[in-house]
Simulated assay, not measured.
Amino acid sequence: MLFNAFSNPNLGKWIIPGTGILWFSGCFFLFRFYGLEVEEAFTDAFFFALLFALGIWVLDMVFSLFSPKGRNLWLIFLVPVTLSFLSVFAHRFFMTWWMEDQEEYLEFLHHTTYVRLAFLALSEQMIAFLALVVSKLERQEELNKREAQMLQLSKDAELAQLRQQLQPHFLFNSLNSINALVIKQPQKAREMVLLLSDFLRGTIRKDTKSWISLEEEMNYLKMYLEIERVRFGHRLDVEFSIDERTEKLKIPQLLIQPLVENAIKHGLYGVTGEVKIKIECEKEGNYLLLKVENPFDAQSSSQEGTGFGLNSVERRLYLLFGRKDLLATSSEENVFQVQLKIPQYQ
């Protein structure tokens, strides 16, 4: 639609009548300035403004049904000029009949015919051109909104897929461990099944919640660590250092668990002694700062893998915040550290 504003029922109630009133006022005072009597100026201005408003209404109707594009843009100039020509000469014919006994007025009317035509045509062309520009801007804005909605839907779908991948990934690892314990340590296998059931019941029930408090996230993490302790016993030592100010800060659900799972994999697999994993949380400006630290053996074959944990967390952070600087890794003297920065906008 070309005249989106005029075709809008709410705006159309006052735009066309409003322009007619402004045109009438301008013409009336102009005619009075050039010496017409009040009655003559009022009558002339009234019918001239009526035809002007009618021309705008016709433009609205025409271009609402047909929006000129490409080679048809010349219609933006031809249609207003044609309407102006018809309006001016219809006005001249009517006023000549209405004021047939007013010689001075008729002379004034005849002398101003082409001036009226020029002003009316220029005004209606400007209105048509402005309406075309507004229409294109509105269509572009609508297109941008649709693209943003599609992009958001795509992001939401990918985030949902990543969250759904987290549990199967962890579940498969747990089932493999249970399988290894069934024959040698059936009691531990049973204990692990019960813990796994509790963990999945808690996380699946809140799967639709994308953000939770750090306190809730830590509760899920501790449930997960109880499962891992069934496998590794005293060898798995996890040290928490949580700033009390961070407990109510928000974090994407199950964001830390894949990092801790990654730390356990690279810290305990292939190692026979006790291994300490450190988890630190603190507030730094408008960020929740998380650190997961574990020892590792650079020569161990356990370092090989798909890298799902780090990659999934990095991708989730990018989809949520559009930034790639929120996850950083470092290794020094056989100690591997992952650092997360979660923006807090509240």
Rank of each mutant, 00 (worst) to 15 (best):
M1P: 07
L2Y: 02
L11G: 02
W14V: 14
I15W: 04
I16C: 07
G20F: 01
W23E: 10
G26V: 11
R32Q: 09
F33Y: 14
Y34F: 10
G35A: 10
A45Y: 06
F46T: 15
F48N: 15
L51C: 08
A53T: 11
G55W: 03
V58I: 14
V58H: 05
F63V: 09
F66K: 15
S67F: 03
N72I: 01
L73A: 08
P80W: 02
V81S: 10
F85S: 09
F85L: 15
L86V: 13
V88Y: 04
H91Q: 12
F93I: 14
F93D: 12
W98T: 09
Q102G: 00
E104F: 00
Y105H: 06
L106Q: 14
E107M: 04
H110F: 05
H111D: 09
T112M: 11
V115P: 01
V115Q: 12
R116E: 07
A118D: 03
F119Q: 13
A121F: 06
S123K: 05
A128Y: 04
V134I: 14
V134R: 11
R139N: 13
Q140P: 00
E142Q: 13
R146P: 00
E147R: 15
L151W: 01
L159S: 06
A160L: 10
Q161I: 08
L162Q: 11
R163C: 00
Q164V: 06
F172Y: 12
N179I: 08
K184T: 09
K184E: 13
Q185V: 04
R190Q: 12
L194F: 06
L195F: 08
F199P: 11
R201I: 08
T203W: 00
T208V: 06
S210L: 07
S213K: 14
E216C: 02
K222V: 08
V230K: 07
R231C: 01
L236E: 04
E239P: 01
D243C: 03
R245I: 00
E247S: 05
K250L: 07
I251S: 02
L254V: 05
L255Q: 03
L255P: 03
I256F: 01
P258I: 10
P258Y: 07
P258W: 03
E261K: 03
E261S: 05
E280P: 00
C281I: 02
K283H: 02
E293P: 01
A298V: 11
S302Q: 13
S302Y: 03
G309T: 12
G309A: 14
G309M: 06
L317D: 03
L319F: 05
F321K: 13
A328E: 14
T329D: 05
E332K: 15
V335Y: 06
Q337F: 00
V338Y: 03
I342Y: 02
Q344L: 05
Q344M: 07
Q344C: 04
